[in-house]
Every structure is written in C-alpha cells, then in structure tokens.
C-alpha cells in the first residue's frame, strides 16, 4: 500500500463538554497541509457528527483520518451499544438522545443525515451489543 498521512485520536466518552476536539484538530491539520476549503468543510462536518455520536451514544471510541491522493477517509470505531435499525437511524429527526443530552443542543436527529450529505461514500457496520464502525469518504473538489 502506498504511504499516506494518518491522524488518529482516542475520543473520550466521559466529557460531553469538550466533545469535538478530534474534529477541530483534523480541521487545523488539513488546513496546514493545504487541502481545499470545501473538502475541509465537508470532512469537518461529517467527522464532527460521527465523533459526537461516539461520545453521546457509544461511550467514546477511536477516530482515524486517512489522507490519500484522491480522497480523505474518516473511520470511526466504537464499542458502544450498536445501532439496531440503521435505516431508521438515518432518517432526519430520529434520535434516542436523553433529555440531559438534548439540553446541550444535541438530539435533533440530524447527525447521520449531515454525514450522508457531506460525504461521497458512507458505510455503517453495526452489531447490537458489540459496536459500530463508520467509514466515510470525501473526494477532493474537482
């Protein structure tokens, strides 16, 4: 396999207030290596939603960003409860977030739809009681 850049983060599932830090880091790093702004924006939005989902629904996990020549791949892997009905979870407005989490501004049920909208490829592998792995791909503009 060709050498490529990888960013890797352990996403803490305890701290709701500092959630999103991995995505903020990635955005900064992508800017530094000169990725186009539109691609950075799409990666930022998609990764943030996935990162937040790991924090609020799965007790944390691991986030990886792979920078290839043709596209950027975001991989989110958790050992949370899993998603029993992925089609339902993908629907705008569907959320199982608690009142506590909603009071922070989460739980609109728009995270997965945002991930779909801002990526060129989205694959969700989930097993109830085992965990969820999400692989997203964003092609560079042009």
């Amino acid at each position: 396999m060709q050498e490529h850049l990888i960013f890797r983060f352990d996403v803490d599932g305890e701290d709701f207030t500092s959630a999103g830090q991995a995505s903020v880091h990635v955005k900064k790093n992508l800017r530094q290596i000169g990725i186009d702004p539109e691609t950075i924006r799409r990666v930022s939005i998609a990764m943030y939603e996935g990162e937040i989902n790991m924090v609020i629904h799965a007790g944390g996990g691991v986030a990886e960003v792979h920078v290839y020549d043709e596209y950027i791949e975001i991989i989110l892997d958790d050992r949370g409860p899993g998603i029993s009905d992925i089609d339902k979870a993908m629907q705008e407005g569907y959320s199982t977030a608690s009142d506590n989490i909603r009071s922070l501004g989460f739980g609109a049920g728009m995270g997965l739809p945002n991930m779909k909208k801002n990526t060129d490829k989205l694959d969700i592998f989930s097993t109830v009681g085992v965990g969820t792995k999400i692989v997203m791909r964003v092609n560079y503009k042009n």
Binding site: F16, T17, S18, A19, G20, R41, I45, Y48, E49, I52, L104, G105, F106, G107, A108, G109, M110, G111, P113, N114, K117
Partner: peptide
Amino acid sequence: DLLSWVMGRACENNAWITIMSNSNI
C-alpha cells in the same frame, strides 16, 4: 440552537445567533 442543524445549515462567515451557552458552541 440544535447543534446538528447549525452544522448542516449555517454557512461560512454567517453570524450565528443562539441561546445555547455550553462549550459545544
């Protein structure tokens, strides 16, 4: 005020008006 609406809909360089006050903003 719903963060994933803001993520999905706010445009670059918008002023974002909200009543949310926690650090996620």
